[in-house]
Simulated scan of single mutants.
Amino acid sequence: MTVVQQRPATDARTLLPAELRETLAQNVRVKFPQMTEEYAHRGVGQMLAFLAAGAHSDTPLSPSPLVDDFWHAFLLHTKAYQEFCAHTLGKFVHHQPGFLDKEEHGGGKALRAQTMEAITAIGFVVDAEFWPELDIADCSQCHANCHNSPKHG
């Protein structure tokens, strides 16, 4: 008899040093001053989980609009982002604005559902509060139409 033991999901915030997490959280709070510090730190974790899932995925994944704002904040720290991708993820995760073919990829809502499944599959926590549009509309990727694309890089 084989016993399969499930591990609890990991908070992706552990992928970055505390100082950089704090910087990214504060940068997003400048754009959204009403956002609490705790919520901003959770958002950093969801962005990191998205990036880790994107690095492991052979198909495009799509962030929620809010997760995309955290990704944009990280991208502005180009050296830190490049080093994170290389040393932590093992590959560069490109930010690819633009529309993906809905017939091929299922549209934004389907892509984000796939993204949440991909995050869970690699062992990270999905914080549903950062993916609210899964319950409301079948929109395209996000307000800026961003996604990762395994076809680039």
Rank of each mutant, 00 (worst) to 15 (best):
H77W: 09
Y81M: 05
F74P: 00
H56W: 03
P63Q: 07
H87G: 13
T88D: 05
P65T: 14
Y81Q: 09
A80E: 15
T88V: 12
A86E: 13
S57P: 00
F70Q: 06
D68K: 05
A80P: 02
A86W: 08
A55Q: 04
Y81E: 10
P60I: 01
A55S: 02
A80C: 09
F74K: 00
A73F: 02
T78V: 12
F84H: 06
A73C: 11
P60C: 07
L66D: 02
Y81I: 01
T88R: 06
Q82A: 15
L76I: 13
T59E: 15
P65Q: 10
A73Q: 05
F70G: 01
D68P: 03
H72W: 08
P63T: 04
H87A: 14
P63F: 06
T88K: 10
A55E: 02
C85G: 03
K79E: 15
L61P: 02
F70L: 01
S62C: 12
E83K: 07
H72N: 04
S64L: 08
P60V: 03
A86M: 11
D68T: 04
A55M: 08
P65L: 07
Y81G: 03
V67P: 01
D69Q: 14
F84P: 05
H72D: 04
T88G: 01
T59W: 02
F84N: 03
H72A: 00
H77P: 07
S62E: 11
S57H: 02
F70A: 04
P63S: 03
S62M: 07
H72K: 00
A80Y: 07
T88L: 09
